[in-house]
């Protein structure tokens, strides 16, 4: 009987994710695919890199998502003078009962959902501190190690223009982001809706809180349990290997970490879509955000004006 109840709850999963999107949509207009991809990163217990032009509502979107998911949110605005300790925290002298002692003051990294705004403006040292925390899910200050909150996600943003004075993330570090999500411009109707919503006197509706830390952890476990057929796995490996075997288009291909990431992302997408198995459509859809920051285009491809997404499309067609 309990088993049947669990199965019935599984049936409601699609509605749950639909409700999350609906709540986020109370604040954010459009960007459904971006929200879905952020949810994929969260379900995979991984991090995502959002790239877009300024003013597209990335920060608002992530803040809203944190509210809906009932996660502790913090934002780190990266600047060239940002120090690692500004992220991780530092020891401060605290005086109590006439005695002075060092007390660790937690930095903004101690949150469930961290928005690392304009990560490419921070120095490599600070970037490295953040990326280490992302990877290890812990920070070490002095001789002490502090575990980060669980669940823990970093959603970093970067601006594709205005590259002067920035420190582009090296490939080894971008590889640690499961997804690179491109936030596009809204359509005409969406933009009209945005100006109506935010330039008037009527306050936007407050989104309801759904899920929570425990629920998210449970969903993360379920994501890994989503069964995947062997031929879909083979498709993933073929796709990732083809990024290494296409020298005319790609100079450096994706690593096996990309294969793992693609399978996980496909599983998460299947769960969000309400399926209990991974479809080749999931693989194809997630191939773009998983691979686009893991491949380096060849000179020929760039000369032809191809983007990473164009090349991935070609590779998928060849499968």
């Amino acid at each position: 009987m309990a088993e049947m109840d669990q199965l019935k709850n599984l049936e409601k999963l699609k509605d749950t994710f639909g409700n999350v999107s609906s709540e986020v949509a109370k604040v954010i207009v459009g960007q459904d695919e971006v929200i879905k991809q952020i949810l994929v990163a969260i379900l995979c217990d991984s991090n995502a890199l959002l790239e877009s032009y300024p003013g597209l509502g990335k920060t608002t979107m992530i803040k809203t998502l944190a509210d809906v998911l009932d996660l502790h949110f913090s934002r780190i605005q990266h600047t060239p003078d940002l120090m690692p300790s500004d992220i991780t925290g530092t020891y401060i002298i605290e005086e109590s009962e006439g005695k002075k002692r060092f007390v660790f003051q937690k930095g903004p990294i101690f949150a469930n959902l961290v928005l690392a705004d304009e990560i490419n403006r921070a120095t490599p040292k600070t970037q490295a501190a953040l990326l280490e925390a992302m990877q290890e899910k812990q920070v070490t200050v002095g001789s002490q190690t502090f575990k980060l909150d669980s669940p823990f996600f970093v959603l970093a943003t970067q601006n594709p223009i205005d590259q002067e004075g920035t420190y582009p993330l090296p490939e080894a570090q971008t590889d640690r982001f499961l997804l690179k999500i491109l936030v596009g411009y809204p359509s005409f109707e969406e933009e009209t809706d945005i100006i109506n919503r935010f330039s008037g006197s009527v306050e936007t509706k407050k989104p309801a809180t759904l899920l929570g830390e425990k629920s998210i952890q449970l969903l993360q476990k379920l994501t890994r349990q989503v069964p995947i057929a062997d031929d879909i796995k083979r498709r993933v490996v073929q796709l990732v290997q083809s990024t290494r075997n296409t020298p005319e288009l790609i100079e450096y291909g994706a690593s096996p970490r990309a294969s793992i990431g693609l399978i996980l992302a496909a599983k998460a997408r299947a769960l969000i879509e309400g399926r209990k198995f991974v479809s080749s459509k999931d693989v194809d859809a997630m191939a773009y955000p998983v691979l686009r920051h893991r491949i380096m285009l060849s000179f020929q491809a760039e000369r032809q004006g191809l983007t990473a997404d164009d090349v991935i499309t070609e590779l998928i067609k060849k499968l």
Binding site: L10, E11, Q225, V226, P227, K276, F277
Partner: peptide, 12 residues
């Protein structure tokens, strides 16, 4: 396999 997701899959 006997995980919850596989059971759900069979149910589906």
């Amino acid at each position: 396999h006997n995980s919850l997701m596989v059971q759900g899959l069979m149910f589906d």
